[in-house]
Amino acid sequence: MSLGDGQGDSDTTRPDDGGYGGTGQTRTRYHDQDNGGLYGGARRPKSSRGTVTAVGVVVLLIAAIAFANRGGDDSSTSSSATAGSSAGSDSGNAGQPDAAPTTASGEQPVGTKVANIPSGFAHNRQGVQSAAANYAVSLGSTGMFKKDSRDKILDALFTAEAGAKLKAPLDRTYSASLLTRLGLDANGNAPEGSTFVSRVTPVGTKVVAYGGATATVEVWYLGLTGIAGETSTDPVTSSWKTWTYDMRWSNDDWKIVSYSEKDGPTPVPGDDRAAASDEISKAIDEYGGFTYAR
């Protein structure tokens, strides 16, 4: 029994007044176990070994979490850094973020516009993806349903040769019969009191091929099309598509040479309540678009 234990229990040892006094010998008296254990009525504090073990486990857990978070931060920083590095490279796949392909490059959006369309994109992989995303917005806009604005969009986004070849076929595509089926008049206008909706929101871009002066880029997007109005027979609906652009560096900017479209990938629809036509009209009027940068 240690000194500390003796001091903590005054009844454990004491002199015997009946014959052992002055000899230095002591007589030990044990308390009944029924009164709280081997050491008497007042239980001694339990060993701190269990507490130390618990604290040690907590400390190790915290250290493991901190280490994991530090590793995640380093990974994110690395991805962002390599994305920024690849933005400054004109060729090859070196430095492209593999684990997080949608990581932002860190490059600033362009500050110039042609025909109200962002222009002047960087001559690199980041720039061609930014161009493709912004061009998708214009090609999916209401301006494509009107002859004058459609021609301006084609002149701004396509190479001179490609734009010239596309005008006649697209005039046939956006024919009067198509406009009528959509509920529009011959000039592409919605009925009075209604709002024609045609919007594209890019979800992501991917470089399929890059050769410095040429590139193939895919743009996955969510599209909204229809007429918002009480008498509309073509309500606004959503669709998921992917556009593929063959791009060329021309006149100090990226231009489209040709493009194609396919359905999806389409997520499973959620349980959101469909908005009323006036809510859609108000949202279209109040919420503007973005300049997209990769």
Rank of each mutant, 00 (worst) to 15 (best):
L3Q: 14
G4Y: 13
D5M: 13
D5E: 15
S10R: 15
S10L: 12
D11W: 08
T12A: 11
R14S: 11
G19S: 04
T28N: 13
Y30E: 08
H31R: 15
Q33I: 10
Y39W: 14
G41E: 14
G41H: 15
G41Q: 14
G41P: 13
R44D: 10
P45Y: 14
K46Q: 12
S47E: 13
V55M: 13
V55A: 12
G56I: 09
V59E: 10
L61P: 08
L61R: 12
A64P: 08
A66V: 10
F67K: 10
R70P: 01
G72M: 13
S78W: 08
T82A: 09
T82C: 09
A83R: 09
G84V: 07
S86V: 02
A87Y: 15
G88A: 06
G92L: 01
D98L: 08
D98W: 08
A100R: 12
T102E: 05
T103P: 03
P109W: 01
V110T: 04
V110G: 02
G111V: 13
G111M: 12
T112V: 08
T112P: 00
T112D: 06
A115E: 12
N116Y: 06
P118R: 10
S119Q: 00
S119V: 03
G120I: 01
F121W: 03
A122Q: 03
H123K: 11
Q126S: 11
V128A: 05
Q129F: 06
S130V: 02
A131I: 04
A133I: 01
N134S: 07
S138W: 06
G140I: 01
M144H: 01
F145I: 04
K146T: 11
S149K: 03
K152D: 07
D155L: 03
D155A: 05
A156C: 02
F158W: 01
F158C: 00
E161A: 02
A164P: 00
P169A: 00
R172F: 06
R172I: 07
S175G: 02
L178G: 00
L179G: 01
T180D: 07
T180N: 15
A186D: 15
A190Y: 09
A190S: 06
G193Q: 02
G193N: 04
T195G: 05
V197N: 05
V200T: 13
V200W: 03
T201M: 10
T201D: 14
T201L: 10
T205C: 01
V208E: 06
Y210N: 15
Y210H: 14
G212Y: 03
E218F: 08
L222R: 08
L224G: 10
T225Q: 14
D246E: 06
R248N: 00
W249K: 02
I256C: 04
I256Y: 08
S260R: 08
P265G: 00
V268D: 15
P269F: 03
G270C: 03
D271T: 05
D272E: 12
D272Q: 13
R273V: 11
E279M: 07
K282W: 07
A283Y: 14
I284D: 12
D285E: 06
E286K: 14
Y287R: 13
G288L: 10
Y292W: 11
